[in-house]
Computed example of a mutant assay.
Amino acid sequence: MRLMDAGRGATLAHDGSHLTPETLWTAWSADPVVVAGLLLALWAYLRGRGRRAVDGERWRARCFGGALVAIAVALLSPLDAVSGALASAHMVQHLLLTLIAAPLLVLSAPGARLVRGSPAAVRRAIGPLRRRLRLGRVAHALRHPGTAWLLHVGTFWAWHAAVLYDAAVRNTAVHALEHATFLLTGVLFWRTVIGVRAARVPAGLGVLLLFGLAMSSALLSLLLTFGRSPWYTAYGETTHVWGLAPLADQQLAGAIMWVPAGLVHVVVAVGLLVAWIRGTEDGTDSAAAAAGLVPTRVGPEP
């Protein structure tokens, strides 16, 4: 098994220049930061769960587990290595983080359980910090749906610009920052759309936010798909061994962003639209829960 060296700042972050289809399944990563983070999160979550789990909590637990699996596939599986050779694989990695891991984390609402499962010293440190963040101006701004939308869309466009994209492929630290910002801004955005009741916006506004995100994503994917020349120099010598020219690989990446991402946006938007209609009929603001996107609350809000 080939282990990725987290300290190679100036070399290819994924070592894609030496990867071939024959060696793909030996290219598993054991990044200690990612592995430790996932294991600690799982340990704290399991430790923080109550002895008696109701249906809603089990549903959330499955979402949390799915989010961890999605992150592991994106960052530890051979997909991480091949994304250093193919833009199309890199796009799959991005979508796993923003369209699967981020919304599943939001649906799982793990904050309270992670705090309960943390050691006592961590809990004592987190308490005052959470209170300051909740009352701080920056936290208040980040909770605003417009800010969350702008941050997520802006992050996606910025990292797909040639300079930053090539830097992320070639530099391990920049690559890690790219993934972190995708996941964090994704969580901020999805929290406003399908988060817990106290955090999410009305379903009608959620539909508009999703529509704006879908249009932005579609525009970027169209530019990639119908571009007449490759955008990214980092893949100039790595795609041919996979049977693709650099431009064809870029066009495939654009198609992957266009179709799967569009389907996710449409499905969630339709669910929110149904919830909105039902809410107007019964006079409530039921948002995503009425569409089944968020489990019906049982007991106190996590």
Rank of each mutant, 00 (worst) to 15 (best):
A85W: 06
T181M: 11
R131Y: 15
P295T: 01
A288E: 03
F211R: 00
M1W: 12
A74P: 02
R116Q: 13
V241F: 09
A180M: 09
A234E: 14
A101V: 11
A81K: 06
L151C: 15
A291D: 07
H152C: 03
D80F: 08
A102W: 00
A30P: 01
A36W: 01
G37F: 00
L273F: 14
S83H: 03
V266L: 08
A167Q: 11
A261I: 07
R134I: 00
G37Q: 00
A161W: 12
D249E: 01
A125V: 06
G66F: 01
G66C: 02
T98S: 14
H18W: 11
R143N: 04
F156E: 00
R200V: 05
L247S: 06
S83A: 14
L12S: 15
F64E: 08
V115E: 15
L188D: 06
A67N: 02
T185I: 06
A255N: 13
T225S: 15
A253K: 08
T185Y: 00
F182V: 00
E22F: 13
R137F: 01
S221P: 11
V274Y: 08
I194P: 03
L151S: 05
T225Q: 15
L184I: 13
V174A: 02
R130G: 03
G66E: 05
H152L: 10
V274R: 12
S217I: 01
H94K: 01
